[in-house]
Computed example of a mutant assay.
Amino acid sequence: MLNDPWFTVREIDKKTYAISELGHWEKVHSFLLLGDEKAALIDTGLGIDNMKRITDQLTNLPIDVITTHVHSDHIGSHGEYERLFVHEAERDWLINGIVGLSLEQIRQNTARDISIPVPESFDPNTYKPFQGQPTGTLIDGDTIELGNRKLTIYHTPGHSPGHIAVFDEAAGYLFTGDLLYDETPIYAFYPTTKPVDLVNSLEKLTRIPHISMIYGSHNTLGLTPEILDEVKHAVDYLRKNELVRFGTGIHHFNGLSIQF
């Protein structure tokens, strides 16, 4: 596998790669999926270093960037790619800037708790999240054909209004962005989040058939679908106890936690 000073590249299978930024406290993962005709890049990381350096080494196929949501740790290298897609509810965020987070806060989040040397090109004082026009917008139920590899888009709001999950039909891989991962809390406590939507979206994941593995955008790379049984329990527990609202704190379950 590629030896790179900033990115860690891991092969999920012969046509699927995780591109991770493990030297940063957020442990961000982006994913490159290769088809016969083109590739999809699910998110582009923090923007501390240039992800295109990696994808150029992994494929010469044309790349469609699929944005799980418009937060700075998912759109960092968007400016390096020509074809960008985002859910219609966050098109304006991509063009005009992320709502609800100040540039100062974003810079602090990006620059703190980094455990490996950053590239000389990175300056936290001038760092700005990508802003620009998407090539197209996505909605729930859209499919993206890569050539013998079909991806289905699920609109999963809550963490943000236009958050999506991406399902690789043939492999059974579900890429959940910031809706589902382990180790640190799933966030729905910002003003732009909606706890009720997040819980509904988690429930939506449990209804997707034939999932073989779940790939969230942070922490452990790859969770088995058994975690969805715990997601069902969490959804029921939070609703029954009327906890699905701002200010109820962090709720711990087996393999996941949620913060409102």
Rank of each mutant, 00 (worst) to 15 (best):
E80I: 14
E80F: 15
Y81A: 14
Y81R: 13
E82G: 15
E82F: 15
E82V: 15
R83K: 15
R83W: 14
V86E: 04
H87K: 05
A89G: 03
E90A: 01
R91Q: 11
W93N: 07
L94C: 07
I95T: 13
N96M: 07
N96H: 15
I98P: 02
I98Q: 08
I98A: 05
G100R: 01
L101E: 11
L101H: 06
S102G: 11
Q105H: 12
Q105R: 12
Q105Y: 12
I106N: 02
I106Y: 03
R107V: 05
R107A: 11
Q108M: 10
N109A: 14
T110F: 02
A111V: 01
D113H: 09
S115D: 07
I116Q: 08
P117I: 02
P117G: 06
P117H: 06
P117K: 05
V118T: 11
V118H: 05
P119Q: 14
E120H: 09
S121F: 13
S121E: 15
S121V: 13
F122R: 05
D123M: 05
N125G: 06
Y127N: 00
Y127G: 00
K128H: 13
K128E: 12
K128Y: 06
K128A: 09
P129S: 06
F130V: 00
F130H: 05
F130T: 01
Q131S: 04
Q131M: 04
Q131A: 02
Q133L: 11
Q133T: 06
G136T: 05
G136P: 02
G136E: 04
T137A: 08
T137I: 12
L138E: 04
I139A: 14
G141Q: 05
D142E: 06
D142L: 10
I144M: 12
E145R: 05
E145G: 02
L146T: 01
L146F: 03
G147H: 01
G147V: 02
N148C: 00
L151G: 01
T152D: 01
I153Q: 00
Y154C: 01
T156M: 00
T156V: 00
P157E: 02
H159Y: 15
H159C: 14
H159S: 14
H159W: 09
S160T: 10
P161W: 15
I164R: 12
A165M: 15
A165E: 14
A165C: 15
A165K: 10
A165Q: 09
V166Y: 12
F167C: 11
F167S: 09
F167H: 08
D168R: 11
D168Q: 11
A170F: 09
A170S: 11
A171Y: 07
L174M: 11
F175R: 04
G177L: 06
G177W: 01
G177E: 08
D178M: 04
L179Y: 04
